[in-house]
Design a protein around this nucleic acid. Structure first.
Length: 745
DNA sequence: GACAGTGAAATTTTT
DNA sequence: TTTCACTGTC
């Protein structure tokens, strides 16, 4: 396609975003609302830079957060401009992995300087990436005094520290609410991890940042290489990603690297994972002469849907501010249904879907959105009963399955025999008589050395040594199946895989052999027979997915990177079957559906209880994301009572619902007041309780505005808890309370 | 090391 | 209510 052709498809703001290319060292922030054609802009921009500005595609780096988004971006950019295939279009983490493999020895030198040389391996060229579970295991091995159940907590905290760009040497951990005790734990973990030569997820960003920051030569080379850096979904970037971007930009040395970020502050929903809305709010402050372009024309949803979205999000204070403008013709007004309980909610959704289906609306037009995974259960059983085909998105993911983790542990161990976590996972599975004590001995003796090469010289019991021999010979046998093509190291990874795909043996045969020889297949086959699972099938699936890679050590590493850096592997059921989608609100980001039902709109469910201030704003953004997924029709459901943890709880409508104007939606059913008398006897209607209902807004003379988070009868008195905007929670007896007033809405 | 029995806990989760 | 992690027994 010619440039003027694809540019003519854009609206003025989109076009401006595309042609802005940083003359006069200006950077660019594109504030792209939901459904405003963001991906089109970024892909067109890549094509435009190459074909019109004659930019070498090799010098373009475009990063996204998910594999799916990266694939889509590459595909669409290449369609516009074939040379875009030579640009680096990938996820933040996969770029980090690429960078680390390239500069592993510089990274290792950095760590040797920090920790001293003894027993430190740093980052190996053939490192594998530890996931959360692996991290927790490593924590418990690095700090044996820690109780098992706290390891995951500490691992999480370490992840968070890395997301904030903090190392054990950092001055303070106040940003992540941790202190000196944490510093010691973090340091022990790091030392242990550096012994293995492997990295965790956080390292994929943190270490490239540290290397760039501390190594002027590499920084310089990198500035020469990447002249144009584009970041998608910038609102989801965390602190360390921001720091890395600053190094890539080379602001201080005036490297002249063009930075363009695209994002939507209103769709930032990953604060709990370290994402910083502040990054996008501060962009204009942090980068050079930045230009801000707003894309607010929405091509996805009807004006009625956008009116709701705009009303809701305008209640947030921390935002750059924008109002979506509908480009579609008028449609149907959104519907809010007040329902007695969650069974009625399931039936209401089923009725909607089945009625529409009779009129020819496919099941796949529908998506049921909910706040927590547990809420899918009711829908699943109802849909099963009423024969509505459905798919649940993002529950047990492929890579989280035991058998897959086992096979991957084998692969990781072969790639890097210093990987103690992988070793521990597989050495005694199936049982080889190598218990925890023996494992400990072996790992201790082989610290920072190849377990494969050194394990035989460790003194262990006779029984264990037989098992170990068995294990090691399987590993050696498997390794011998993998020729290493060191001679071809000079070639770039892309070039190499292309060639080898055609000629060499497939890696799938290797993975298949691995399942069999390791005993994993047999082990899981017997599990399948007991539990009726399909673990063996999954192992075969894994082998299949390796078919595209050559049967070499390099192919193995590529395959590992692909698997490890794409934990969002599609559910196998994403074939063309016509079915309803059940999905958490978080998982809907980037998706759209003709008909959307947002369920469980009750205080305590959505928003979750005790949310206030910034946290409440994030919940509101989540609601906004949900609303803007809908193309044609939007429904809300809110239940008067809900079974939670085995008890029936009486619910109040979500405060978010009152943020939508009365004329912006149609209400069906009766809005419940708290403790309604439907269920005679148990909960007599107390007029005080009715007035001071859960979810209502209040104002306190000393504490300011707040929301009633719970209310119950205690010794004949109605007691409420109020969450104030500063986060504090207070209890009151409203009957006698004078400083507290109710704000009617 | 497998298993039943007990008790505490119960968000969201790109990589 | 359900789930999962831990405990003690065989």
């Amino acid at each position: 396609m010619e440039a003027n052709e694809y540019l003519s498809l854009l609206n003025p703001e989109q076009k401006e975003s595309v042609v802005h290319s940083g003359e006069g060292s200006e950077d660019l922030l594109i504030l792209a609302g939901a459904g405003s054609g963001k991906t089109r802009v970024i892909t067109t921009k890549i094509a435009y830079l190459i074909s019109q500005k004659h930019v070498d595609p090799y010098s373009i780096l475009a990063v996204t957060f998910t594999k799916k988004a990266a694939d889509e971006m590459r595909e669409r950019a290449v369609r516009l401009e074939p040379k875009a295939q030579y640009a680096q279009i990938r996820t933040f983490h996969s770029w980090g992995a690429y960078f680390l493999r390239k500069y592993h020895s510089e990274a290792s030198s950095y760590f040797k300087a920090v920790y001293g040389r003894e027993g430190i391996s740093g980052v190996d060229s053939n490192f594998t990436v530890y996931d959360d579970d692996d991290m927790a295991t490593l924590v418990s091995k690095a700090i044996p005094s820690i109780p098992k159940k706290e390891t995951a907590l500490i691992a999480h905290k370490i992840s968070l520290a890395k997301d904030y760009g903090l190392t054990p040497e950092s001055e303070s951990f106040s940003e992540i609410d941790a202190g000196e005790e944490f510093r010691e734990q973090y340091a022990l973990y790091e030392k242990r991890l550096r012994q293995t030569g492997n990295v965790d997820f956080g390292d994929l960003i943190l270490i490239p940042y540290l290397v760039l920051k501390n190594n002027a030569e590499i920084r310089h080379r990198t500035h020469l290489r990447y002249r144009y850096v584009l970041v998608d979904e910038y609102q989801d970037s965390n602190r360390v990603q921001f720091l890395l971007l600053r190094e890539l930009a080379g602001i201080e040395e005036k490297a002249g690297v063009y930075i363009c970020v695209v994002g939507d502050d209103d769709q930032s929903i990953y604060k709990f994972r370290g994402a910083e809305v502040q990054n996008i709010l501060d962009f204009e402050k942090d980068f050079s002469k930045p230009r801000l372009i707003r894309l607010v024309r929405n091509y996805r949803s009807t004006p009625e849907i956008l009116a709701c979205a705009n009303s809701v999000i305008s209640n947030n204070e921390k935002r750059l501010g924008k109002t979506l403008e509908a480009q579609k013709k008028k449609g149907k007004i959104p519907v809010l249904a007040y329902l007695p309980n969650q069974d009625d909610e399931c039936d209401f959704c089923s009725d909607l879907i089945l009625n529409a289906h009779e009129k020819g609306v496919p099941f796949s037009d529908w998506a049921i959105l909910y706040r927590t995974n547990a809420q899918s259960l009711g829908f699943e059983s109802t849909f099963l009963r009423r024969k509505i085909p459905y798919q649940v998105v993002g529950t047990l993911k492929f890579y989280e399955r035991e058998e897959i983790k086992d096979a991957l542990a084998w692969i990781s161990f072969l790639a890097n025999p210093k990987n103690e976590i992988a070793f521990r996972r597989i050495v005694n599975k199936p049982v080889r008589g190598i218990g925890a004590v023996t494992q400990e001995k072996i790992v201790e003796a082989c610290a920072a050395k190849s377990i494969l090469e050194n394990a035989r010289s460790v003194k262990i019991s006779k029984k264990a040594s037989e098992g170990l021999n068995d294990f090691l010979s399987v590993a050696e046998e498997l390794l011998s199946m993998l020729p290493s093509n060191a001679a071809e190291d000079e070639k770039s990874a892309e070039e190499k895989s292309d060639k080898e795909k055609k000629s060499a043996k497939k890696l799938s045969d290797f993975v298949d052999a691995l399942s069999k020889k390791s005993g994993l297949e047999e082990f899981h086959r017997s599990q399948d027979e007991i539990a009726g699972t399909q673990k063996v099938l999954n192992l075969e699936e894994l082998a299949n997915s390796a078919a595209l890679y050559p049967c070499t050590m390099e192919g193995l590493l590529e395959f590992l990177d692909h698997i490890e850096l794409d934990r969002s592997l599609e559910d196998e059921s994403s074939d063309g079957t016509d079915r309803v989608t059940l999905i958490t609100l978080h998982n809907t980001k980037g998706l759209e559906f003709p008909r959307v039902i947002i369920t469980g709109l009750e205080y305590g469910v959505f928003p979750r209880e005790n949310k206030s201030g910034e946290e409440l704003e994030e919940e509101r953004r989540l609601f906004y994301v949900g609303i803007t997924r809908a193309r044609e029709q939007l429904y809300f459901t809110s239940c008067a009572s809900r079974r939670m943890y085995g008890q029936t709880k009486y619910m109040s409508p979500s405060p978010f619902l009152s943020e939508i104007g009365a004329d912006e939606m149609r209400v069906v059913g009766d809005m419940p007041s708290s403790m309604q008398g439907d269920f005679a006897g148990e909960n007599a209607v107390d007029p005080v309780a009715k007035k001071w209902r859960v979810g209502a807004s209040v104002f306190h003379d000393d504490w300011g505005p707040g929301i009633i988070s719970s209310g119950r009868m205690s010794e004949g008195e109605y007691v409420i808890s109020v969450v104030f905007e500063n986060g504090s929670v207070k209890k009151f007896l409203p009957k006698y309370q004078k400083a507290l007033i109710l704000i009617e809405d």
